[in-house]
Structures are given as C-alpha cells and as structure tokens.
Design a binder for these strands. Structure first.
Lengths: 242, 242
DNA sequence: CGGATCGTTGAGTTGTATCAAGACGGGTGG
DNA sequence: CCACCCGTCTTGATACAACTCAACGATCCG
C-alpha cells in the first residue's frame, strides 16, 4: 500500500523537477503511531504537514463540554492538515483512530515547490477544496435522521476506500469503535449501536472487527441519499495522473 | 461599501501588476439580483466566479426530499465559488438570500494571474481554506442543541460583519427570514421561532426586520460556545493588507 | 483471575418535528 | 379606499426521535 501511495506523491511532487530546485527528493519516512494519538493539536502553529500512509486518522475537536467531535476521516494518501500551508494556526486536532503510519513534510519545502511549480500548487489546492466539499456535505448530512446519516458515512468510506484501491469488492477496512462512530455522526453510542443493528437487520451491511461489508450497495446509497459528486473522485484522480 | 470592497480586491489582485501581464484592470461590474435568485446551480461547470459586493448570499443544496439546506452565508467581499477554480463541477447552489449586488470574474483570468503571481494564488487559496474551516465548524455546531446552534450562527455573523466594518457596535444587518434561519440551522421554522424568543427572553439579542442586535455579547458567546479562531480573521486580514 | 474496553439491552425522559390554525403586515387590484 | 391575498411570524397540541442512565455480557490481556 506504500506503493500506491508513493505512486501518487511521486507524481504529485514531480520528483525530477525537485532536483532542479536544489531540493533533494523528498524523504517520505513512515512513522508508526498507535490508535488514539494526537498528530496535531488545535492551536498548534503549522510548521509541517501530515501525510497518512496507512490506517485511519481523523480531524476532530473537543467542545467545551469535553465531548470529542469528529469532522472528517483520513485514509491512505490524505494530507489532513494541508491547510496549515496558508493558515498559521490550526483550528482542529488531527489524531489517529486506528494504528497508523504517517509521514511529515516541512511546509517550507512544499511552499517553495509550489512557488516554482504552479501545477503542484493547483493540485494541492484542489486537495484542500475536495476536503472542503466533504465538510460541506457533512453539514448537510448532519441534519438527516440517524439511520440515513450512518448509512451516508458508510457509503462515503466505502467509496473513498474503493477509489484508492483499498476496497475488495464491497468489503473494506474501517477500523474504529462504535464510540468513534458516535463522535463522527454526533449520535450517542447507544443510538449508533441500535441503528447499526437496523442496518444489519435490513441486510444492507455487516460491520464487525473493523471490517465493513456492504451487502446491498444500491439499498445503502438510496437510504443514505448518497450522491458521490461531492467527493470529486475523477478530479482527485487528476492529481495522480498529471 | 463598494469602497471597502474595492480596497480589498485592488490589493488582492494587485492591479498594477496586471498591466505587465497584458491584462487590463479587472472590471468589477456590479450586477443586481433580487432575493432568492440562483447565482450558480449545482452541477454547473465552473467558468467564472462570483464576488458578493453587497447583500447576503448563501451556499445551499436541495436534498432528495426537496428541502433546501444552507451550508454557508456569504457577505460583502466573499467569493463563494472560488473552488470552481480547480474543481470542474460545482456541487452546491449559490443563491442570494436578500437583495444583492455581485460581480463575476472569469476563472481563466484568475488562473492566469495566479500562475504569474504566487502571492495572489496563496491569498485566494487562503480564502478557500477559511471557508473550509467554517464548514468544519458548522459540522461541529450542527450537533449542539438548537439554542446553542442558533446563538453560534448569530455570533459568527456578527463577528464577520464587524470584521469587514459592517457592524455598528453590536448591531448589524442580517436580512433573512426565519425560514432561511431554519434552513441554515437544520431546525424546523417553528422551533427557530421559539428559540429566537428564548434568546430575546434572556436579553441576549433582538432580531427584527433583518437587523440583528446583540445586547449581551459575552452571554451569547458563552451560550454558543463560540471561539472565533476558526474564522481566521487576522489571517484573512493579510489578504487585505498585503 | 481481575480489570479494562467494547458491545448490547431496557426503561424513562427530553428535545425537536409535525400539524393545524390564527395574527400581522404589506402589496395589489377592484 | 377598502378588500383581499400572500408571505411571515406566532401559538398550541401531539407524536416521535434520540438521549441519558444503568446494568449486563463478551472479549481480551496482564
């Protein structure tokens, strides 16, 4: 899986061009983290950015009542705090959800590359725009009933995993607890549990041991009201092909 | 108000530099729209981008049940579909909420300028990152109880209006109906009405005739759990000062 | 074996939606 | 000038979705 990742970023960062900028090939050194570790904390000054190599990470925030709220999940190849390139202060935490390997790249390097290479800049900009699009969708989905909301989240994960080649048919890894799901959907753990049972009862999915299986994709999509346009998958692909 | 706006964008687009690129000064021609008009429709191909000169606009989407959901409000100086620069297909509608004047700029021009002027590119990129940050906050806020959610929205509007010099003390224009508020918060109109009454009863705000007055800023902020960091106002200011 | 984490269940409560109807106000046409 | 209409705001009553609290079962691991 490091391979598919590397393929994306070698193209993205156009490693041959880097030499002419006097920057050696960017070192992507994988660093291992256990589950539930902070990678970035709200309020941190952005000096480098995270690349998720494997595992599941998330963007979250702790509200004044002490409850954690997950605003996004990040899978292999995602750069969750790319925003730090142009915003000094980060306004959310980035944490691992499952075990993860990640890499860090200094923002100064990326910024330098972007200045000399508008195509790279555009590609990274596009990544942040897709993130924004997903947030926007979550705003809307957050207003739908619990069952639909949950279904939508599962659709999104499955579709994104598939897009990076990490779904095997309609089976993929989604290694988190029901508590994590409750923080991502804004539902209580108890309610998540019951709604998951309902999804299973309808024979739409099974979800055990961090493995998600969709038995009826059309049914799940219909229930969720899932329209994948907001993921801009075709355009994200540009970043890999260009 | 066109003046404060123009000041921002003349600096942003660095009009003197444009001449050397062989592009005449960008024409910002104000176009008038009545309330509740579409400026951009979901699925449109992005060819130009909108600048809000005056009035209130929003980003919204109609879900499969036919209900409109507002995901963001846009005030003077905002460029709500800047994302179209790098995403071909727009995944939301942009509409006027009150009467508005707006301008359009061709994406091709902006793209050309960005290629020659990394500082402009960074500034526009930053604008889209701040938008993303606001969406992310809305995801979180959407999970809080109705009263807090409403309070949070009002804090955000007041603070943003103030930041562009369009709040007079703790009074600002916020020209929308309770139906609009319900679409923005994901509450029923009836409930919005009652929660507004509650805010008034607590002597936190009054909201009549499209004019919002905050009587107790600290109280409202406390209730809302409003932490303005996510608006990145100081950094947005960069875009105006640079 | 004991403790921790995670998943599951039941019962009671609260928040918010829905439905229905009335009040107010501004605009339009007779 | 009045009558009417439409959009908006407001109120009351009822229904339902989701939350909380509390407890128990199942694993896993030390």
């Amino acid at each position: 899986m490091l391979n598919t990742f590397a393929a994306k970023f070698e193209r993205l960062f156009d490693l041959t061009a880097l030499e002419s900028d006097g920057i050696r090939a960017i070192q992507i050194r994988p660093i291992y983290f256990t589950a539930n570790q902070d990678l970035v904390r709200e309020g941190d000054r952005a000096t480098r950015c995270v690349i998720v190599l494997s595992g599941l990470a998330c963007t979250s925030k702790v509200d004044e009542t002490g409850k954690r709220q997950i605003a996004a999940f990040h899978i292999s190849g995602d750069m969750p705090d790319l925003m730090g390139l142009h915003l000094e202060i980060l306004d959310s935490d980035i944490r691992t959800v499952s075990e993860c390997t990640v890499a860090f790249i200094d923002n100064s390097i990326i910024r330098k590359l972007c200045n000399h290479n508008p195509r790279l800049a555009a590609a990274l900009w596009r990544e942040t725009l897709i993130d924004a699009s997903i947030f926007r969708e979550w705003v809307n989905v957050g207003r739908r009933p619990a069952l639909n909301r949950l279904a939508h989240l599962l659709c999104e994960v499955m579709r994104r995993m598939d897009a990076i080649g990490m779904a095997d048919g309609l089976v993929c890894s989604f290694d988190l607890t029901q508590t994590d799901l409750s923080e991502a959907t804004g539902l209580s753990v108890v309610h998540v549990n019951r709604q998951l049972q309902e999804l299973r009862r309808r024979e739409l999915i099974t979800f055990v041991n961090g493995q998600l299986t969709v038995h009826n994709w059309a049914g799940l999509v219909g229930l969720a009201g899932f329209d994948e346009d907001y993921l801009h998958l075709a355009e994200a692909q540009h970043n890999q092909i260009n």
